[in-house]
Structures are given as structure tokens and as C-alpha cells.
């Protein structure tokens, strides 16, 4: 499990470095997805499977999709040939693809080792335990988080209107 952690850490750092050094947004987003998935694998090795699932669903899923929507709305790729040119150049997608394949291999290995009981001593903190505390002592924090999300929803709707007054 240690090897899985250190390899994921190396992938996360490398992918994050590539995120902040890319010129164009779409390759940077691909590397950002790889970085977030690597951190999800790290969460799994740390015994937090629920947080790993949330990381993959909310960060690598929802938040990155928001970024992709905005890149599309800004029309940075409105030319139909841009897509063909993007996929035609392996330099755009080969790096993220290799890193993602390494993560997949790690995940398969970790799941196999888990089934064989090789993870061993560390106790994973499951979703049920998190939920019980979340709706016990942390109930106020949950309500505050819901208010924050409502405020963000209203603000995003207000700011995102197309008929903005000048």
C-alpha cells in the first residue's frame, strides 16, 4: 500500500505541475482531472474510501465539468476543426493518458491487495461512521454548508444572466 501511496503522490505532483504550466485550458483541465483522481487514490490508501468517492464524483466530476462548460461558453473551441486538431496531436493527450493508466493499474492492484487482506492493520473509516458524526455533533455545520450552497446558487444565477446591465 505504501508503494501505491508514493506513486500516486508522484503522479499528483507531476500532474499539478503540468496544470500550472500549460498554455491552453483544455490540456490543463485534463491534467487537473488526473491530479484529482490521484488524490482520490491517496484518500483510499489513507483509509478514507468515502472521501475518495466524493473526490472523484464532486471534484473530478462536477467541478471540472463546470470548468469545461465555461471553456465551451467562452468559445475557445468553437471552430469544428479545433477538436480534430486537438486529438490529432498526441502531445495534447498522451501525458494525461499515461498518468491515468498508471492510476488505473494502481487502483486494480490496491483492490486486489485489499481483497487478499494485505492492507492489514489500518482501520478504514467508512461512510456510516462519517454520516453518524455529520448529523450528530456537526449538524450546525451541515446547515451552514447548505446555506452556503444556496447563496452560491443564487449568486451564480444572478451573475450568469446574459442580460447584464452595463
Amino acid at each position: 500500500m505504501n508503494a501505491v501511496f508514493y506513486l500516486s503522490a508522484a503522479i499528483a505532483v507531476a500532474a499539478t505541475f503540468m496544470v500550472i504550466t500549460r498554455t491552453h485550458a483544455v490540456p490543463a483541465l485534463l491534467y487537473l482531472v488526473v491530479s484529482l483522481l490521484a488524490i482520490a487514490v491517496i484518500f483510499y490508501t489513507l483509509g478514507a474510501p468515502f472521501a475518495a468517492a466524493l473526490e472523484a464524483i464532486v471534484y473530478a466530476g462536477a467541478i471540472v465539468v463546470l470548468f469545461v462548460f465555461v471553456v465551451m461558453m467562452l468559445g475557445l473551441g468553437e471552430d469544428a476543426t479545433v477538436s480534430a486538431r486537438f486529438w490529432g496531436d498526441p502531445a495534447n493527450w498522451l501525458g494525461p493518458a499515461v498518468l491515468a493508466l498508471a492510476l488505473l493499474a494502481e487502483l486494480v492492484y490496491a483492490l486486489m491487495a485489499d481483497r487478499a487482506g494485505a492492507v492489514g492493520a489500518r482501520r478504514a473509516i467508512e461512510a456510516g461512521e462519517v454520516g453518524a458524526r455529520l448529523f450528530g455533533p456537526y449538524l450546525l455545520a451541515v446547515e451552514l454548508a447548505s446555506l452556503l450552497l444556496l447563496a452560491a446558487l443564487v449568486a451564480a444565477y444572478h451573475l450568469g444572466r446574459r442580460t447584464a446591465k452595463r
Binding site: V58, I63, L66, F67, A152, L153, A156, L159
Partner: peptide
Amino acid sequence: LAAAEVSV
């Protein structure tokens, strides 16, 4: 927080 921050 991250979800709210990124949407706004």
C-alpha cells in the same frame, strides 16, 4: 466550499 467558490 470549493463547489460554491468555483460556481461563483
